[in-house]
Design a binder for these strands. Sequence first.
DNA 1: ACCTCGACTTGATAACAATAGT
DNA 2: ACTATTGTTATCAAGTCGAGGT
Length: 611
Amino acid sequence: MEKKKSTSKIENGLKSKEDVVGDADELGEGEEESEEYKWWLESVDDSVKWQTLEHSGPLFPPPYEPHGVKMKYDGVEVELKKDSEEVATFFAAILQTDYVKDKTFRENFFKDFKKILKKDKNNIIKEYEKCDFTPIYDYLQVEKEKKKLLTKEDKKKIKDEKASIDLKYGWCLLNGRKEKVGNYRIEPPGLFRGRGMHPLTGTLKLRVQPEQVTINIGEEAVIPTPPDGHKWGKVQHDPKVSWLATWKDNVNDNIKYIFLAANSSLKGQSDLKKFEKARELKKHIHRIRTSYTAELTDQVTAIRQRATAMYLIDKLALRAGNEKGEDEADTVGCCSLRYEHITLEPPNTVIFDFLGKDSIRYYNEVQVDAQVFKNLKIFKKEPKKEGDQLFDRLTTGQLNKHLSSQMAGLTGKVFRTFNASFTFQQELLKTPTNGTVQEKILAYNRANRQVAVLCNHQRSIPKGVFKLELKLVKELILKLLPKAKKSRPELLEEISDFEEEEVSRVKKEYKLFEMEKFRKKLEKKNEDKKNEKIKEETSFATKETKSEVRKSKKALSEDEVESGKKKKELDDWVILTEKEIENECKEFEKTAGYPSMKEKLEKMTLERYTS
DNA sequence: ACCTCGACTTGATAACAATAGT
DNA sequence: ACTATTGTTATCAAGTCGAGGT
């Protein structure tokens, strides 16, 4: 195999995209130049993941250090033993978030808190309602502020320590090559933050002991030393799996792993394989579509359901939708859709409304093929009612079995990759061939947006409304919009009641403010660009005069130095039409509001503590 | 033919670092 | 130079899917 010295970043800039991706292996700074390993040219047999494997094992979180701050029970300070204090502190830390507003979260937390209290022989704390965690919360806030105020040297020291840890645990030797390890830290204890209506949210996630951990490592390799006084649960040498360590999580009985990083050869190879599979589907998609379209009218219900599901997965990029257990949030995918998740509106509109992965709402009104509409109507026919499976004769297992008979290795998720990639490519084809960098970026972002729409990817405005926040929000608005003092006198009033409604109203107001700012920014840039153009033209006309020439020869004039950056950016700026500005604003609206506000609030909190 | 378990990917989001703006 | 904004990386919950047991 031809080997080549890895090249510098500057050289990479001149190379084709493929090469740049290949060169993306990063060795720590100051590393010796290593010979490049072209994993993407390696054969794709991945049943054996490695021949030799050496690593430093997982890194455990530091033991809990008590702070001694007392919480209150029924108005009285209570002394807590170490373990109880730790759990109380987990809860205190998120006091202002709306995890605490969630009844399930509170109850699960308190149940586990009481268990720990019992072990610590504490029989004072009995009712959640009498608990007051705010002293601990306040303490944590102060600690946070202190951390921010650390000196540069202290911050550097912390950074260096982190780097030396990373040097030890962040790398492994896979077949003798140095590769990056991903999540080498054992997950620290805390309160399980299940998403959506997870029945176990708030449950105490216990500290993982080395005795629960299995190490997977090469036979020849030195076995990493477990923490003092501890032993590994098990040490194995299985080259058929890629993980370095594993343990079982006490909350869901889920198995957790330590894997290599996303940019490692192993992950790279399987990623490549995934996309190659999606490309392969392109060759078969016509045949597969013809086949399931024919099956839409099959006599056998199971086959009809399968065909209909395939249509939805293909057309809407729905997830396969495995069955879920009792102890999980009630979310669905294609195969697990229920009666209540779709509404049929003749002649052929289907309204999807359900919670998908991460309890993110999928809402879509779509026109479907007439036969699909007919089928869905049949699948909803009585005696079916709310709570019943729409595809009652279909499981993901059966679906995938059929898919792999149509094309080797084909499963439901391949359609998502395929359709996302296809959409992305189609959208990129609209890039202006000789457009500016700005225009190209715009096209790229638009393509990404289209994929996000297809796959229903959405980042939500973070929840977690703080009680204190409302007050701060009001202060903030007054600070930013001084004229509101007159027009909105109620903002000056003392807050008596922290109603959710009030919070969202103030937030909306802030969002409007943000959007106005954004629009002004765009318009100003447009203006600047227009002016610059005019200036350019006029300066070109008078360029002949000697003084002008001399001035330009004087390297850069002062104000040119100052506006250098701005100018550079303006060079790429495309003058937007009113409609484009409108579109950009609409896009901005989705993300405007909370994130920038949150930081401002944090700053104000800091000012408060430091003044 | 189910059902559970194990391994791995996916995706939201929180935390941090880099860059732009004043 | 200091701070606001934006981009990147780390974290971890929540999916997918095949294998192997009953």
